[in-house]
């Protein structure tokens, strides 16, 4: 009886302790994925440009939102649900239509020199506009661009934008095609400084 074996530690309650901790972390964990509209702000203006580049009226798709959340598109009142279709028509454009934006020959990767619309979407809102309305309008405009690009990518390259974006990291061709689509339909949403209008 020189050596007595040390008694084994009872580990039966270890599971209980682990369960307790597990439940704590289960409850506190928030698995929410943050989603949102990603935008890029224009860089700060250094000083007033002496000769601001002239932009013709026909190249601008004007969207105004007033303090009552009313939408005015190209001088006509409109519902948000119609904005996307209208914006798409403008972005795609029509070379023969005088009221539609002009086209300019531009170098596009893979496709060579081709006419690209000089479209610009101008968005102006009031300081009293609700954030909800602003997001809706932004969403529709971004959506219009996305849809136009999607259709073009499928028609021209037979791939969805999702496929192009996923493959852009790995494949040179996909990257070039993605660049081409973005070059043909560049997303130009210009936001003017808000005014106090219609209060």
């Amino acid at each position: 009886m020189a050596r007595r074996e040390s008694p084994e530690i009872n580990a039966g309650s270890m599971a209980d302790i682990a369960f307790l901790l597990l439940i704590f972390f289960l409850v506190t964990t928030t698995m929410d994925v943050d989603t949102g509209l990603t935008r890029k702000l224009p860089p700060p203006i250094e000083e007033e440009l002496e000769n601001p580049p002239e932009i013709r009226e026909r190249n601008v798709f004007q969207v105004l939102v007033n303090a009552n959340d009313d939408l005015l598109v190209e001088g006509e009142p409109m519902l948000v649900s119609n904005l996307r279709a209208e914006a798409k028509l403008f972005i795609v454009g029509d070379a023969l239509d005088e009221s539609m934006p002009e086209f300019k020959d531009t170098d596009v990767p893979l496709l060579g020199r081709m006419p690209v619309s000089k479209q610009i979407v101008s968005l102006q809102n009031d300081r009293g506009t609700s954030y909800e309305m602003y997001i809706k309008v932004q969403n529709e405009l971004v959506g219009a661009y996305n849809e136009v690009r999607e259709e073009y990518a499928q028609r021209k390259f037979g791939k969805t934008m999702q496929q192009l974006e996923d493959g852009a990291q790995a494949t040179e061709l996909f990257e070039q095609q993605l660049k081409a689509v973005k070059k043909v339909y560049p997303q130009r949403i210009s936001e003017a400084e808000p005014k106090n209008m219609g209060e």
């Binding site: 702000l41 860089p43 009031d126 506009t129 602003y134 932004q138």
Partner: peptide
Amino acid sequence: KAEMGIVTDVKQELRKANALKINYST
């Protein structure tokens, strides 16, 4: 329900701070 006035002020300040990559949480 927030008004755009305050959101615009924030955006202008972000521009001044050169923080141009933003995201509207939705």
